[in-house]
């Protein structure tokens, strides 16, 4: 009976043996991936001297505070002067081997749409050389950023496109 109990008790462990480390192919050996992942802030809808407004308000506060008590700094000065912080959405276009794979607009985050736009897209491509062209537009009158390259996609490799702030351009790695 003990042997029978041992054998029956082993059944869950047979399940564990079969199911806890079963090889699974999520991608084909010839698959490769192009990833676009970065955050980018679009241009302001209206350019205004935000720093200047704040400096002047701070100066007024210091001046009036010396003379009287209970002076308040007006933290809503930017809204009152119409200095909107809203940003343009970021538009992205991806063309691979002459085929448009992506044409999308990314809204800035935040209740007042004054944050950055976050871009994350991924595309499964077959390994080999592909002609990749990416265009990024972040403002009404600003010229688009362009990245155009013949790229060798290794098997099971990931090619990442991101925005380098220091170089102020799209880069591929």
């Amino acid at each position: 009976m003990r042997i029978a109990a041992f054998i029956v008790s082993a059944i869950p462990f047979v399940l564990i043996y079969m199911l806890s480390a079963a090889e699974f192919h999520f991608y084909a050996p010839s698959d490769s991936m192009l990833k676009i992942a970065f955050k980018h802030s679009g241009k302001r809808l209206e350019e205004c001297d935000e720093a200047g407004f704040l400096l002047r308000e701070a100066e007024r506060y210091r001046r009036e505070n010396r003379q009287t008590q209970g002076v308040r700094m007006d933290i809503g000065i930017l809204e009152k002067t119409g200095c909107s912080r809203e940003r343009y959405p970021v538009e992205l276009r991806l063309v691979v081997d002459g085929k448009i794979l992506l044409e999308k607009t990314y809204q800035p985050v935040g209740l007042k749409k004054d944050g950055a736009s976050y871009i994350y897209e991924r595309f499964l491509l077959k390994k080999g050389v592909h002609n990749v062209k990416i265009t990024l537009k972040d403002g009404k009158n600003s010229p688009p950023y362009l990245l155009k390259k013949m790229v060798n996609f290794p098997p099971q490799g990931i090619v990442l496109v991101r925005f380098d702030k220091r170089k102020d351009s799209l880069i591929m790695e």
């Binding site: 564990i16 199911l19 806890s20 480390a21 079963a22 090889e23 699974f24 192919h25 999520f26 991608y27 084909a28 050996p29 698959d31 490769s32 991936m33 099971q156 490799g157 990931i158 990442l160």
Partner: peptide
């Protein structure tokens, strides 16, 4: 993060939603 996790030993008890 520069290569695809193409073939992985899956623990089906926990990763059943990913397959």
């Amino acid at each position: 993060l520069k290569s695809l996790p193409a073939t992985v030993d899956v623990d089906w008890f926990f990763m059943f939603l990913y397959a």
